[in-house]
Structure formats: C-alpha cells, structure tokens
Design a protein around this nucleic acid. Structure first.
Length: 639
DNA sequence: ATAGGGTTAG
C-alpha cells in the first residue's frame, strides 16, 4: 500500500476533526472530498464513503458545491455509479462546477453520449460552459465524430471568447483532426493567441494522420519545447505511414537526446510496430530490452504489443512468452486476439483453436477479429470441420454477426478443401456482395482441384471486378492450358497484352547480423550477385538428386520449359536464401520476408534446401509464415 | 483540462 505524503495525511486529520464540530461546515466536507480526489490510495473510496455516510447521519443534504466535490471524489476512486447517483440527487443543480465534474467523469469513463447529453441539459438550464467544460465536451464530439455539433459549439465559444483559451483551442484542434477536418484544425492553430506543446502535438498528429509527413516534420523541427508526446506522435506517425525505418531512427535519436524526455508505455507501443513491419527481430529485441530496463515491460499493453511484434518477426516462442507474462486479470480481448492471430499467421491451427477456447474459458467474449484469426488458420491448416463448426455458431453462441471477412475466410476454407460447390453456394447466400477477395479465393480453390466450370464463373466475376489484375488471367489461362484448350488460352493471352495490366514485381529481403538485404526477382544488382547466381545454377541439380522436380506451372505458359525453369531460379526468395546460405553457418535460422505469396516451386525448393543444408528457414510471405525444417514446412503444404 | 495508443484475412 502506498502512503500519502505526510502533509496531506495531516490535512486529512485536521479536516476529519473539523467534521465533528457543531454546527457542521459544508466547506469542511468539500475540502475533504477534494483531498480524497487527489489521493490515489486504495482506501480513498472507503474514507469518502464514510464521510458521505457521516453527512447523511447528520441529515445534511449536499449542496451543489459539496456535490461537485463528491462527484469528483467518486469518479477518481473508480466508482462512476456513485458519482452519477450523487449528481442526480442534488436538488438544485444550478452550478456549472457540479456539471463540470460530472461531465469530466463521463468523459474519463468513455461515456461520450452521456457527456453530450449532460452538456445539453446544462445549456438548457442556462448554465454557462467554461474553459473547464469544453475540453471534455469536445473530446466527446471528436470520439463520436459529431463534427456538426462541434462546429456549432466552436461558433458559440468564439462569441464568448472562450474559444481563444489555450486548452479549449487545443481541444478544437484535436476535434477537427479526429474528424478529418485538417484545414479547420490548422485555422484554429493559426488563430490561437497562446499555444503550448499540446497545441503543436495535436496538429502534428493531424498531419501524420493525413500522411502529410513533411508538414509534420516541419512543425516538429520548429517546436522550441518538445515533450515525450511530441516525439511519440512523430514515431507513431511514421509507423502508421509505413515508415518503420524512420520511426526507429527517431526513437534512437530521442534516446540520444538525454534525460529530458522519458519514453513511456505509449512510446514503446508506437515504435514496436516498426519492427514488426520490417521483420527486424533484432531491433525488436533491443526495444524489448530497453523497455525491461525502464520497467515498462510489465505494462499489459506493452506486453501485448511485444507479443504481436515477436509473432510478426517470426518468433512464436518469444511471442507466447510475452503473452504468458501478462497478468491473468489484465489479459484482455486484444491480447487474446494477438495470440490467436500469432498462431494463425504461423499456421498453427490446433494451437490457435486451443487459444480461442482458453479465451472463452477465461470469460472473454470473442469479437469479429478473434473469428477472423480462427477461420483463417482453420482454412490454412486444413481444420475444415472445426472452422465450419465455429462459423455456424458464431452468431448464436457468441453473438458475433459474420462479416464480409468471415465469409471470405470460410469460402477460402471450403475452396482449399475442394468443397467448391459449397463455397459457391455460400457466396450466393451471403447477405452482402462478394468482392475480389472472395471470388479470388474460390478461383484459387478451383485451380487446385482443377474445376474449370466453377473457375470460369469466378474468373468472369474477377475480370469485371478487377480487370487490371493480370494474375487472374494467368491463372485461368494456365488452367485452360492444362486442359489443352488452346483457343481459350490464346484469347486470354490477347487480353493480357492490354495496357494497364498490373504486374507486381516480387521482392524478398533477409536480415543478417542486423543488416537487411533486398532482392528483386530476376535482379542481379547485389554485390554478391555472381556468387548467388552461381549457387542458384548449381542448387537445382543438387537437390534434384533428392527428388526435387521444378514446378513450372507457376510461370506463364508462353515460354519454353527451359526458359520457365530459368525464370523460376531467379525468384527473389531463392536469391535471398542463397545469399543467406553463403553468409551464415548452418546453425543460424534464416529469416526471409517476401512481398508476395510464395510460389509452389519456391516452397518445394526451400523444403529441400532445409533438408540438405540442415538449416532452419523461416519465410514470411505477404501474410503467412512458413517454418522450414528437415525438409518439411509448418504449413503442411496447405497455404 | 488539451496532445501520443497494442489485435483483422487475401
């Protein structure tokens, strides 16, 4: 238990004695509630309740002033219900102070509708809002996206002059930013007579949110006083805009700046996704170490973010370790979802399902994201019946209505299992329009099971929905070729030659000794390119002896078999792995990231490599992890 | 009092 500072405890005793006096003084009660409001001791609520009871015993009805202090006391001690009850019992609530304290309480607890409702009530009674009212009302407007009401209040506050108050003005900046009205935010900022760090911070966050990095950087550069929020806003702005490298750089720079700014848990959470996106495990570990050093690793949110980071960097073991360190009572929905998603993206179906069940047993209600992770892993690890079982009862048992993404996963699940008719039926039955992801999943299933009839339906939809995506034409064309339908192949080839077709170039990167190396498909610009390609020339022959057969069906059927094999050899993930083999010892785990889905040939190829070189290889493709070890892959060839 | 916030498939 934490002890209050001596002076405060002394004050408390003095006032408690005053309370015994006759006649009773309202101001004494008010003072004691005020003192308790500042106290963060565990028994402040108990003392408050006793003082309250003391008033009741003496037949004292709190007036608006004492009521305001009582409301604040209850709210700060975690008892919003008593705060609201107290407020509602005040017979003549004609005091802005009283309204301010309940408005503050509702906002702090996230009851934004109640805040606004109470503000209207206050307005109706003719009570004036003041500089302590607006920040909470505006935060509520921001959170509920009630921009119309916000503008109305803005106009009002400008007439009374309160709109030029620094706190109120900053709240308006924040509100406009959160509602996506950046130019209005800028206008408020420019017209504020006094600004403080928060005003700048709010505007920086706004520019970052709109992707206007340079403006944010310019503001940040021009600030005379930066606090930890300013740095954190920049760092999280970078990660949100996919600039992980810059986020990490700025984080390091901030640490060099000295002890002026102290990173807190929000800072750690803002920088961690930067490691996840670039698959920079070592950097992630460094930040984890740092967090441990400053005692931030016991924060449940940080632990959750760490678990997510490790999962995205490919280390499930570390991910689970961080998850297990979260206090059971503090393991919330997001933490469980993170762990389910972690197993899901690594293809660990049974573990994901177990985690889902553990979550339910722990009394946490799953949400839409829990089910997305669950269905995704069921589909990728072949747990068809389990997936369907959960899908069929998600609404009735867990009261989560299936969303578009759930249908997408289940269509994929059925498609991968070869249950193409059911998949097609589900698409026709679903209550919303199917888009490219759903028809694409069906088409992929058709290709795997060579169902040309349904493939033509799916492809037909895709040609309309995303005519510029060359992948769909290639897929159907390869299916026609396999069936020997050359006329159809030629028709599609003609379409493919059209302008505006998107060809997403493949790229992979590998991190070795903390340095990341990038490879593009067919590219030969890397300094070690010669050795890499020599190795890639030799490898197929070497592993063919072990049973490898190049699968050229992943190339377009318009070149000779030899040429196809040659194209396959230079796929970017093969280059990255060759580079890894050349520069590491066999006990190093090779960690490769790829921007697209890994092709079937590369997948087989890597399995053989992992066996012959006895080296563990972890490949993260655009949305999935493959753990290659001893000639097999964690995905069980089902991805 | 105002600013910074972790989890989503293909």
């Amino acid at each position: 238990m934490k002890w209050a500072p001596v002076s405060q405890t002394a004050q408390l005793h003095t006032i408690l004695q005053l309370l015994m006096q006759d006649p009773p003084q309202f101001s004494s009660y008010a003072s004691i509630f005020q003192l308790l409001t500042g106290h963060k001791t565990r028994n402040s609520l108990k003392i408050g309740q006793q003082v309250h009871a003391h008033m009741v015993l003496r037949g004292l009805q709190p007036n608006a002033f004492v009521g305001a202090k009582m409301v604040a006391m209850y709210a700060s001690s975690g008892d919003l219900d008593s705060a609201a009850l107290t407020f509602n019992h005040i017979t003549h609530p004609s005091s802005s102070l009283l309204y301010n304290s309940i408005i503050r309480a509702y906002t702090v607890y996230g009851y934004f509708e109640k805040t606004i409702e109470t503000y209207f009530q206050m307005h109706f009674l003719g009570l004036m809002a003041c500089n302590f009212t607006y920040p909470f009302v505006l935060k509520s407007c921001a959170d509920l996206s009630r921009i119309g009401l916000g503008r109305c209040i803005h106009g009002q506050s400008l007439r009374t002059g309160l709109g030029f108050d620094m706190y109120v003005g900053t709240s308006f900046i924040d509100m406009y930013v959160k509602c996506g009205e950046l130019s209005d935010a800028r206008m408020v900022f420019d017209e504020l007579p006094m600004r403080d760090v928060s005003s700048w911070n709010a505007l920086i966050a706004g520019y970052m949110k709109d992707g206007m990095i340079h403006v944010a950087e310019d503001l940040f550069g021009r600030m005379s006083n930066r606090n930890i929020v300013s740095w954190t806003a920049m760092i999280s702005g970078y990660t949100q805009n996919g600039l992980g490298e810059r986020a990490l750089c700025l984080f390091e720079e901030m640490l060099k700046e000295g002890s002026e700014v102290k990173p807190n848990w929000v800072t750690i959470m803002s920088v961690l996704p930067a490691c996840a996106h670039s698959a920079a495990l070592e950097q992630g570990r460094r930040i984890h170490k740092f967090a441990r050093g400053v005692g931030l690793d016991s924060n449940p949110s940080v632990q959750t973010a760490l678990a997510a980071m490790y999962a995205k960097c490919g280390s499930l073991v570390d991910s689970r370790f961080c998850f297990d360190r979260i206090h059971p009572n503090k393991t919330g929905l997001v933490a469980w979802n993170t762990m389910i998603t972690a197993y899901s993206s690594h293809g660990y179906g049974v573990e994901a399902v177990t985690t889902f069940d553990d979550m339910v047993r722990a009394g946490i209600q799953p949400d839409a994201i829990s089910f997305t992770g669950l269905f995704s892993v069921c589909s990728h690890s072949g747990l068809v019946d389990a997936g369907l079982k959960y899908f069929n009862c998600m609404s009735s048992v867990y009261s989560v209505e299936p969303r578009y993404e759930h249908y997408a996963c289940v269509v994929d699940l059925l498609g991968r299992a070869g249950r193409l008719l059911e998949a097609k039926e589900l698409i026709y039955q679903m209550p919303m329009q199917a888009g490219p992801s759903i028809w694409g999943a069906l088409l992929a299933g058709c290709r795997k099971y060579r169902n040309l009839e349904i493939a033509e339906i799916a492809a037909g939809k895709l040609f309309v929905l995303e005519p510029e995506n060359s992948g769909n034409y290639v897929l159907l064309s390869n299916m026609y070729a396999e069936a020997g339908m050359w006329e159809e192949v030629n028709n599609l080839r003609a379409l493919l030659k059209c302008e505006g077709m998107k060809k997403n170039p493949g790229s992979s990167w590998i991190e070795i000794n903390g340095k990341s190396h990038l490879f593009l498909g067919g590219d030969k610009s890397h300094p070690q390119s010669k050795e890499i390609h020599l190795l890639l020339e030799a490898l197929p022959e070497k592993i063919k002896a072990a049973g490898y057969i190049p699968d050229t069906s992943f190339a377009l059927h318009d070149v000779s078999e030899e040429e196809k094999e040659c194209n396959l050899k230079t796929h970017s993930e093969k280059q990255a792995i060759a580079f890894g083999l050349l520069n590491t010892s066999p006990d190093t785990v090779l960690r490769v990231t790829k921007n697209l889905r890994t092709c079937g040939d590369c997948h087989t190829f890597i399995k053989f490599i992992s066996k012959i070189y006895r080296q563990e290889i972890i490949v993260r493709d655009v949305n999935r992890f493959h753990h290659f070890k001893e000639g097999s892959c964690s995905c069980g060839d089902y991805w």
